[in-house]
Amino acid sequence: MTAPLIDPFQRAISYLRISVTDRCDFRCLYCMSEQMTFLPKSELLTLEELDRLCSTFVGLGVRKLRVTGGEPLVRRNIMDFFRAMSRHLDSGALEELTLTTNGSQLAKYAADLAACGVRRINVSLDTLDDAKFAHITRWGRLSQVLEGIAAAKAAGLRVKINTVALKGFNEDELFRLLDWCAGEGHDLTFIEVMPMGETGDRLDQYWPLTDLRRRLGERFSLIPLTERTGGPARYVQVSETGQKIGFITPLTHNFCESCNRVRLTCTGELYMCLGQEDRADLRAPLREGADLEDAIRAAILHKPKGHDFDYSRQNTGQMPRHMSHTGG
């Protein structure tokens, strides 16, 4: 049997997040600049190369594969990649194939995703207000996203809403979002805004989830859950509604001790940590015909103990790359 991927801190790597494109049809304020310079398409891995890399990871013990971007569903012929990955679900080598999306293309692709074995998806949605949605995404339309979410639900996909907590933006929608998700049957996870990319106003946007959770606790009874879904979220159950609420807290309470994931960019760079610059080039060995397994194992040996996000420091603790480069 092939030995599993174990990092220097004895954590087994079983979760790969793969960015299939750096492009997106939105320009969310905390993720991208409005005038983004995207990578030349010639630098991106082909779908066949993405297949080879992901299949190698699956052979090394990765059990969960999350497809991200940019917006993954704007990648040309992306369903060919999902269909290719579904063979690992059929064989039992892969437990879950999923994606994170802004929802703009779900009306078109939800049924195809379900046919490929995708059972649940994450949809990024920070507001239910049309005007605020247009502001935060710059180019997006809320109605299009809600239509996509409805199509996903109709296709039998379980939807989890990911909401970035933004001070002064969606604080007043906390309970509206909660009620909407409860009514629609969606789980909901709140995420602290991270110091990545052009971080000029990140501190002004930062709403610590300790405060958000306190506000929830003033109205509802929150029962901590021990459940883990392979990601960084910690969950509670709302007694009054029965719904599950997640909290991803890279700043107020990091989750590094149980980190089981690495991120592969659309150009073949493997980032061992979202909040560090350690990375390995897998495109070169892939295209040169070198041993991919050896290259991956060598990279995992450089996985750091944890990230170092910190708004209080100007030159360290903040990542210069955009979130869309690494994959959300």
Score class of each variant (00 low, 15 high):
Arg219Met: 05
Phe133Tyr: 14
Gly246Ala: 15
Asn315Pro: 01
Ser91Leu: 02
Lys41Trp: 08
Arg228Trp: 11
Gln35Asp: 15
Ile121Cys: 13
Cys256Glu: 01
Ala151Thr: 03
Asp129Thr: 05
Pro250Trp: 09
Asp172Gln: 12
Glu96Gly: 04
Ala284Gln: 10
Leu5Phe: 11
Glu288Cys: 00
Arg219Ser: 01
Leu44Phe: 14
Gly185Ala: 13
Val159Gln: 09
Ala284Met: 01
Thr98His: 04
Arg228Lys: 14
Arg120Tyr: 07
Arg87Phe: 00
Phe190Leu: 12
Glu184Met: 13
Glu71Arg: 13
His307Ile: 06
Leu142Ile: 05
Asn170Arg: 03
Val145Lys: 04
Thr98Val: 05
Thr56Ser: 13
Ile18Asp: 00
Ala280Ile: 00
Phe26Val: 08
Val62Pro: 07
His307Asn: 10
Phe82His: 05
Gly183Gln: 12
Glu34Gly: 08
Ala280His: 07
Arg23Gln: 15
Asn102Ser: 14
Met323Arg: 03
Ser324Tyr: 11
Phe169Leu: 15
Gln105Val: 07
Arg263His: 12
Thr37His: 13
Pro72Thr: 14
Leu157Thr: 10
Ser258Thr: 14
Arg261Met: 10
Asp308Leu: 08
Thr241Gln: 12
Glu173Asn: 07
Leu188Asn: 02
Glu192Asp: 07
Ile300Asp: 01
Pro72Leu: 13
Ile136Ser: 02
Gly242Trp: 14
